[in-house]
Amino acid sequence: MRIAVTAQDKNLDAEFDSRFGRCKYFIIIDPDTEEYQAEVNQAATAHGGAGIQSAQFLANREVKTVITGHVGPNAARALEAAGIKVFIMESGTVRDAITAYKEGNLTEVSEATVDSHSGLNMS
């Protein structure tokens, strides 16, 4: 089982990044062994469809679950098609996200939580 957490840096103590399509890094982790890999999100600078491209990237890495802050409608459609579950949280570190996930403290969403392009307006 591999889950991905959107992050602002490359390690488990990094601040979580609430944007999905335009997060800086994906930390892809096996929650049982806590073995992880940090991947630069190439879609962060895409002209459009960043969320879609990110969903495809995660699907190609056989990620089944993603923890992020919010997803737009296009990303939500792509994640659903790829069979990737989405859990949301507000803030904390990547480690906090994993812990909350393991303890079952995160909310699963199946629809967009924000409008299109909202990731573009945030720093």
Binding site: A46, G48, I52, A55, Q56, A59, A78, A81, A82
Partner: peptide, 11 residues
């Protein structure tokens, strides 16, 4: 180039 079409899963 615009991520407007995308094979994902079975769709």
């Amino acid at each position: 180039a615009f991520n407007a079409i995308l094979p994902l899963g079975n769709h």
